[in-house]
């Protein structure tokens, strides 16, 4: 019994120790790495993946997966940019953009919950559909011509007390989601469904409703990520967020959440996203070519999962 709880502690500490190890190595190899400027830049870059990964954590906890988040990000970003370009108030456009993401997520949820389609297949299909819709909507060109709004610029480029606003948004959302998972009935139901769907139905949990909720939340968070990215870049590219779903899944797995569902925590996902962000940033600083970066990232993910396996066995 005692050994098990030690193992559980290790399970939880593992990602943090991994992040620390990477940070130490990078700070030795590159002196700029630990500068405040660089750390804030790095955090700002992490925001996008973190928001996708937060939603992905909920989805994976229910035993599902969402491959469409990258495309949702692009479509919601383009729609928001398009609305502003046609004169809609930026705040309203942002709200509608997030709502559009939630609707896309709900669409996934309905297909998966009511249509009983495997999440992998359902979101593989909508990944293509949403990307296609983005290309149709933008005619394959970046959406611009909305950059005169200072309010909108703030979302991606602003600072508050010297901290980038995207980073503040990320942490606020993180704490809200942490509370939802730990403290609310909805959060408990998310874990229960991933742990045993049958027992959840028989305990009176409205499993379909929870699933649709989870995918909607993920869609909304992906849209928010798309809006932040659009604001930062000053344009919405139809190719934005391409393959980001894989980084998001990697962050969740690095954080120690089980792909089988039912077990995991969102703090781990934050750490997982930071690991990916730190690696990207550090390797850039070191001047490693982006081709090699991919190999390093893949190797780190493999290493993390193998270490995790050995701890639990």
């Amino acid at each position: 019994m005692r050994g098990q709880s030690l193992g559980q502690i290790m399970q939880k500490l593992g990602p943090v120790l991994g992040l620390l190890a990477i940070v130490i190595v990078l700070s030795i190899m590159s002196p700029q790495f630990l500068s405040l400027d660089n750390l804030l830049t790095m955090l700002r870059q992490v925001t996008i993946i973190a928001l996708l990964a937060f939603g992905m954590t909920f989805v994976i906890l229910t035993g599902g997966i969402d491959l469409s988040v990258g495309s949702t990000l692009a479509l919601a970003g383009a729609l928001t940019a398009g609305m502003m370009a046609s004169g809609i108030d930026p705040i309203l456009a942002v709200l509608l953009g997030v709502l559009a993401g939630a609707v896309m997520g709900a669409f996934n949820g309905v297909i998966i919950a009511k249509g009983k389609v495997a999440p992998f297949i359902a979101t593989l299909a909508t990944m293509t559909i949403f990307r296609g819709l983005t290309l149709v909507y933008t005619d394959g060109r970046p959406v611009t011509g909305f950059t005169d709004s200072q309010t909108f610029d703030l979302i991606g480029r602003g600072y508050l007390f010297g901290i980038p606003i995207p980073v503040i948004i990320m942490f606020v959302i993180f704490f809200i989601l942490l509370l939802i998972l730990k403290k609310t009935v909805f959060g408990r139901h998310v874990y229960a469904i991933g742990g045993n769907e049958e027992a959840s139905i028989l305990s009176g949990i409205k499993v379909n409703r929870v699933k649709i909720g989870v995918y909607s939340l993920t869609g909304a968070l992906a849209a928010l990520a798309g809006i932040i990215l659009t604001s930062r870049l000053g344009s919405a590219s139809p190719n934005a967020g391409f393959t980001y779903e894989l980084d998001a899944i990697a962050a969740v797995v690095l954080g120690g959440t089980s792909l089988a569902g039912g077990r995991g925590w969102i703090f781990g996902t934050l750490i997982g996203a930071l690991i990916i962000g730190v690696l990207n940033n550090g390797l850039n600083l070191l001047g490693v070519s982006s081709n090699y970066q991919q190999i390093v990232k893949g190797a780190v993910i493999l290493l993390a999962v193998i270490l995790d396996r050995q701890k639990s066995s």
Partner: peptide, 9 residues
Amino acid sequence: KEEGLVLSM
């Protein structure tokens, strides 16, 4: 185990 409990909880 299949229908009554959530074993991971």
